[in-house]
Write a protein that binds this DNA or RNA. Structure first.
Lengths: 128, 128
DNA sequence: CGGTATCCGGTTCGATACTG
DNA sequence: CAGTATCGAACCGGATACCG
């Protein structure tokens, strides 16, 4: 366990951390990931998203898709029919991100029980 | 672009999205990622984190490391010396996650300007 | 169908001051 | 050095009602 910790590595940290913070500002938020995942398999309509992303309110779905659209992660296509039809789709940029999201998912699934266990241990230690 | 959207894929979405939401509850939050990245290169002391994660307040750093420790992502070692010395380090579980965090970073760097451009385009279109 | 508008409670977070 | 305590502002997000 070498402690090769210098000013240089602190510099590196800042360069790494800042763009990452930016991504999260775009991608985090309670519902963003859920919406991206739900839209990943093809064009999806508003109501389909509403059903797929379980628990989301209409308001939050609107705000979330707007934000994702603004950041260029989601494309929105309006068909001026009656009744109106709107389709959302991942942009190429978002499709690249999706792979990383999947590896996050995989990590979460592998360590789900570990996290629960860690919490139980921590809480038990505190209450003592 | 086939629209092979069925009940089955909706099922898949829910199975994927839920654990992902859980990860984010652990890992998101304004500062978590920054702290994890800052702690990735070896044992780091509290004050070092405070300097490395630019903009974080003492309070938020405390809350963040506590949360990460509780979830088993960060280990906390106290040396009972005067003055006190506390070192934080990624757990093995967190080190696995770090790879994914890096690919998030890489994505962010590749598309940083794309996102800025997308926003400018969107905002211009709205104000019109 | 695909949204908006408004209200409002809860949580988050920064600022500040204090401590073993 | 490594925290804790308290306060208030800002923001987030749910509920509800309405609209082209």
């Amino acid at each position: 366990m070498s402690r090769s910790h210098t000013n240089v590595s602190v510099q590196v940290i800042e360069e790494e951390a800042c763009p990452l913070a930016e991504v999260l500002d775009h991608v985090a938020g309670k519902w963003s990931i859920g919406v991206l995942v739900a839209a990943a398999h093809g064009p999806v309509r508003f109501t389909e998203l509403e059903r797929a992303v379980e628990g989301i309110s209409r308001r939050m779905l609107t705000l979330t898709v707007r934000k994702l659209e603004r950041d260029g992660l989601l494309s929105r296509t309006v068909y001026p029919t009656v009744p109106p039809k709107v389709e959302y789709e991942l942009t190429d940029m978002a499709r690249e991100l999706y792979g990383t999201l999947r590896s996050l998912t995989d990590w979460a699934q592998r360590h789900r029980t570990d996290i629960v266990a860690a919490r139980a241990r921590y809480d038990a230690a505190q209450q003592a």
